[in-house]
């Protein structure tokens, strides 16, 4: 499912908002969730999961072409942990 399919499906499931409204809403939600993560805050959606940042320690890497050592600084990466309802529903689909 892509973003535009998600927008279509949401539009079909309700009867107040036009597809344009839903499109703006979905884009706003994704931008806002990105803003929140970029500011170091967590997101917790009950039954869905939580988004947070994980720290990656600095390390020495290598340029795969030249073999030269490069210093990689510590950084944060987004992390998603599925919630219980999400885990259960996805796992129940196995073998279907």
């Amino acid at each position: 499912m892509t973003k535009s399919e998600l927008i279509e499906y949401i539009t079909e499931k309700q009867n107040q908002l036009t597809i344009k409204d839903v499109e703006m809403s979905v884009k706003l939600l994704l931008d806002y969730m990105s803003d929140i993560l970029a500011s170091g805050e967590r997101i917790e959606i009950r039954g869905f999961g939580s988004f947070s940042l994980h720290y990656r320690a600095p390390r020495t890497g290598r340029n795969p072409k030249t073999g030269e050592a490069v210093v990689l600084e510590g950084k944060y990466v987004p992390h998603f942990k599925p919630g219980k309802e999400m885990r259960d529903r996805v796992n129940e689909s196995i073998g279907k």
């Binding site: 998600l6 949401i10 309700q14 039954g47 869905f48 309802e85 999400m86 529903r89």
Partner: peptide
């Protein structure tokens, strides 16, 4: 809308 957003992904 927020409910539908997460429900459709799930």
């Amino acid at each position: 809308l927020v409910e539908l957003f997460f429900e459709e992904i799930r």
